[in-house]
Simulated assay, not measured.
Amino acid sequence: MTESTKPRATGPLAVTAQDVAPRQKPSIYPAPFAAMMQGRQKRVLGDLFALQNFGVNLTELAPGAMSALRHHHQMQDEFIYILEGTPTLVTDAGETLLRPGMCAGFAAGNGDGHQLINRSDAVVWYLEVGDRSAGDAVTYPDNDLRADFVAGQWQFSHKDGTPY
């Protein structure tokens, strides 16, 4: 396929990321975990451009909010880049205060649970990038939760396999 015959997305060519409306559903976690994501807003940028191989989100964390439950992926690499604010990165190794311009990556299958928590009084903005690996599974070391990416959707269960 030549460059001129590749299919193009029908969406915009460029946008101002902060002008993109936040995702309507604040969290895909089942209850009671979804309620723990209050204060987090994601602007789903990758889908806007019909990206197929990786996702990109501009995420806003209000004071006291967290990015996600502490988790790790079996198949998906993740990357974050701090734009504004000072979130705390929580991993198995402990806590690291991040500042604008800092970034972190989480290789698939390394088993190191991670999350960001905004313990400051100011809003945090960051970019998150992850691939869209088929067959991915997510483990949540601090919660009775597991997620499996099946047929393009996340399916949540208890650690013993019982569905939510």
Rank of each mutant, 00 (worst) to 15 (best):
D92I: 06
P100A: 14
T59M: 13
M75E: 15
V56D: 03
G55M: 10
V90N: 01
G55C: 05
D77T: 01
D92N: 13
M66K: 14
G46N: 10
N110D: 15
M66C: 07
I82P: 00
R119I: 02
P30N: 14
V129K: 09
E78P: 00
L48I: 08
S120Y: 05
Q76P: 00
G105E: 13
Q74K: 12
G85D: 06
M75K: 15
R43Y: 07
F79A: 10
G109V: 09
H73P: 00
G55D: 12
L61N: 05
I80D: 06
Q115M: 12
L116N: 02
H73C: 02
I82W: 08
P63G: 10
A122Q: 14
G85T: 02
H72K: 07
G85V: 01
M36K: 15
R99D: 03
G94V: 11
P87Q: 11
E84I: 02
R43G: 03
E128C: 05
P100F: 10
G113E: 12
L98Q: 05
I117G: 00
L127I: 08
G46Y: 12
L98G: 01
H114V: 06
L97N: 05
Q115P: 00
D121C: 03
E95F: 04
H71E: 11
S67F: 05
L116W: 03
D77C: 02
F106P: 00
A93C: 01
A122N: 09
W125Q: 08
A31E: 15
N110A: 07
D47C: 01
G105F: 11
G109E: 13
G55I: 04
R70E: 08
T88W: 11
C103G: 06
L69C: 02
I28K: 07
V90Y: 04
G46T: 07
R40Y: 06
Q74H: 11
A35W: 03
W125L: 12
T91V: 07
L116Y: 04
M66F: 01
V129A: 14
M37R: 12
A50T: 11
A107E: 13
G46E: 10
V124M: 06
Q115K: 13
Y126Q: 06
L89I: 05
R40E: 08
Q41I: 01
G94S: 09
E84C: 01
P32G: 09
F79Y: 15
P30E: 15
A104P: 00
A104H: 09
G109P: 00
A34S: 13
G39M: 09
A108P: 00
L127M: 08
Q76L: 02
D47W: 06
V44M: 14
L61T: 05
F33E: 11
V123D: 06
I117V: 14
A35H: 04
G39Q: 10
V129Y: 09
A35F: 02
N57L: 08
Y81G: 00
I28T: 11
Q38H: 10
A50Y: 04
E78H: 08
L116Q: 03
Q38C: 03
L61S: 06
N57Q: 11
E95R: 14
S67R: 08
Y29H: 12
L89W: 08
K42S: 14
L127V: 06
A62D: 11
S120P: 00
A34G: 02
F33Q: 09
H114Q: 11
V123L: 12
G113N: 10
M66R: 15
L69F: 04
P87K: 12
V124D: 01
Y126R: 07
G55T: 08
N110C: 05
A50H: 13
N57A: 12
F79D: 02
Q41G: 00
